[in-house]
Simulated scan of single mutants.
Amino acid sequence: MHILFIGYGKTSRRVAKQLFEQGHQITTISQSPKTDEFATHLIQDVHQLDLTQIKPIDWVYVLLSPSQSSIDGYQQTYVDSVAPIVAALKQHPIQKVVVVSSTRVYGENKGERIDDASCIQPVDEQGRLLRQMEQLYQQAFSKQCIIIRPTGIYGTSVARMIKLAEMTQSYSKVHYSNRIHINDLARFLAQLIHVEHPENSYIVSNNQPIPLHEIIQWFQRQLNLPELVLENGEQSGKRIYATRMKEAGFKLEHEDCLGDYKKLLAQMG
């Protein structure tokens, strides 16, 4: 199959490499030059996407991320790009369009349990824009669209967590956080090619919700820093479970984020 990646960052690269090794032809779209020999790279702005000169495309992965997490950034990257992408793909024999969104579309924020059957009700503008993007792709590709909602992606750096450990002296509440290792996310995205009757959406997470203050405390212990003080037991965030991913038989390789963080810290040392 000829597989197109619209947006080519760390996750896309991992998926593309796996699919190339399975014998597929890979084309990628990004705004900067890329050097991977296993793919044909096109430098284009997705808002003026032109796919008239490339071979018929069978599968598409859309993995875009805004340069800034502002409302304008989300509007431009996620919503304003849909119409030109849909128009450019219409002339191709698309079997599936896999769109990577976010669990931000689930608005709960009091420690509730969320899974693939949960209602979608974003509570902030960024979440609403992500949901709008999902709906636009679902309308354009009603039978071909698969929405992927990953939780927080980790596995390439611990710089942000080290900074939090250094700067956090107290935490106001028990805030649940959820993670998926970048390699597990990439494997799941690549595996979708082989699913005969995929669902129309999947949460992708390691199914291990952890209060963020506990992870920061863990880093503080590893780095011999003073441990933060939890001010009260009020809960926020959400506890997210990837039920459809599990039902599909997908096996995680990275269920223990602390073990992964420990390896990353060791590599720095």
Rank of each mutant, 00 (worst) to 15 (best):
I120E: 13
Q121A: 11
D124A: 05
E125I: 12
G127C: 03
L130G: 08
L130D: 13
L136R: 13
Y137S: 08
Y137D: 08
F141S: 05
K143V: 15
Q144E: 14
I146S: 04
I147A: 07
R149E: 09
P150V: 00
G152H: 01
G152N: 03
I153V: 07
I153K: 02
Y154A: 05
G155W: 01
V158H: 00
R160D: 14
M161S: 07
I162C: 07
M167F: 12
T168V: 11
K173G: 11
K173R: 13
V174S: 05
V174F: 01
Y176L: 04
S177W: 02
N178I: 03
R179E: 09
R179G: 04
H181W: 00
N183I: 04
R187V: 05
L189H: 12
A190M: 12
L192V: 02
I193R: 15
I193L: 15
V195L: 15
E196A: 12
H197S: 14
H197V: 06
P198M: 07
P198F: 04
E199I: 11
N200M: 09
Y202H: 03
S205T: 11
N206A: 06
Q208K: 11
E214A: 06
W218T: 03
F219Q: 02
F219D: 01
Q220Y: 07
Q220A: 06
L223V: 04
L223C: 05
L223R: 03
L225I: 06
L225A: 08
V229W: 07
L230A: 07
N232E: 12
G233D: 15
G233R: 10
Q235R: 10
G237V: 01
I240C: 00
M245I: 04
